[in-house]
Write a protein that binds this DNA or RNA. Structure first.
Length: 308
RNA sequence: CGCGGGGUGGAGCAGCCUGGUAGCUCGUUGGGCUCAUAACCCAAAGGUCAGAGGUUCAAAUCCUCUCCCCGCAA
């Protein structure tokens, strides 16, 4: 069971493994992009190409779905970023249980957006944890865990594929060792647990009173979705890349302090944020030097919320 | 039929409403200045104004269609 790009390597790894994939469950096709075109989730596309039966229930807590699932007679259900909470009847369906591939070093970053939050919080390492699922949100006993370095330039978008690949390897490894009986599930230390809740569009609005380092990490963690943004007057600016500079400033947070052909420095609660890559409505993302070539922006300008 | 914006020398933009000499900030090339420079000064090259059709004495500009790109919303 899985839906987005993150789950694809896991499915592919299973398809390459010795185990048989009897079926794939993915979220329904959703209207996406301009024109409201229905788009199949990435996992579904891979499954189609591999000729694997696919289920895309609108609701999973139904008798119909449960019956369809049990008809496949799965020994084990592997779950990677499916996007729904599985309830007890499903968890108990497979003989060997449900194994989840989670994009963090549990018990840290339980929840829907572990990759993003790890970057937002400026972590220098994260990883993959496989676990036996229970009713809670990523609370089940852990099976295998492997670390992965977060590079200084990593965004959620560049980190996720590496984690996903690692996830695929770890999943196959986990299943093999489960079958061999050489794994001992390990309880999570709930006291160490942190949460990584689903991000919303609003989480992308930059709060200039934060310090520059936090903001730079936030920009990385929110890329490519939902994207960090701020307002210049009524104009919305998406900030795709920014670097934190130390140095005190007496300017009000959000003030454009320095402006030349190459750079735009903005005052924050602590330090300066050097905006490197920007995108305005109707335009592509571009380097700040490109942006400044065609847009008249004066030092002293205020960035902030649209209401300000 | 979800809403909207855009395609103008290599990059980013203005010009379009109110048709009439292709403009700005850079980049590139050559020259100059300087101990030196991504700085400064001078000069040059580089454009079928996305494409097709139409209106007009005249179209980047007005009308129609096509292609491509982007934001919002989901």
């Amino acid at each position: 069971m899985g839906t987005p790009e993150f789950a694809v390597p896991s499915l592919e790894a299973l398809l390459r493994s010795n185990d048989q994939v009897v079926g794939v469950v993915s979220q329904p096709d959703r209207p996406k992009g301009r024109g409201h075109q229905l788009v199949a989730p990435p996992v579904k596309r891979v499954a189609e190409r591999a000729g694997i039966p696919i289920l895309q229930p609108l609701k999973i807590r139904t008798q119909e779905f449960l019956q369809a699932l049990s008809a496949w007679q799965p020994d084990l259900i592997a779950v990677a970023a499916y996007g729904r909470i599985l309830h007890t009847p499903i968890l108990r369906l497979p003989r060997m249980g449900c194994v989840n591939v989670h994009g963090s070093l549990l018990p840290k970053y339980r929840g829907a957006a572990p990759v993003q939050w790890a970057v937002i919080n400026g972590e220098t390492e994260t990883g993959i944890t496989t676990m036996l699922m229970d009713e809670g949100m990523d609370t089940g006993p852990m099976l295998l865990q492997e670390k992965l370095e977060i590079l200084p330039d990593d965004t959620a978008g560049t980190l996720a594929p590496r984690l996903a690949e690692l996830g695929g390897r770890l999943l196959v490894d986990t299943i093999a060792r489960l079958k061999a009986g050489t794994l001992t599930p390990q309880r999570q230390d709930d006291g160490q647990a942190t949460l990584a809740p689903l991000l919303r569009k609003e989480d992308g609005l930059i709060d200039w009173t934060m310090n520059a380092t936090s903001l730079a990490n936030r920009v990385r963690g929110l890329s490519p979705w939902p994207g960090a943004y701020t307002f210049f007057g009524v104009e919305r600016w998406n900030i795709w890349k920014a670097i934190a500079h130390g140095g005190a400033t007496t300017e009000k947070p959000g003030t454009i302090v320095t402006l030349n052909k190459q750079a735009m420095l903005v005052a924050t609660g602590d330090g300066l944020l050097d905006i490197r890559e920007i995108q305005t409505a109707n335009a592509k993302r571009m380097s700040v030097s490109q942006f400044l070539a065609g847009h008249r922006v004066a030092a002293g300008g205020q960035l902030g919320s649209s209401m300000a």
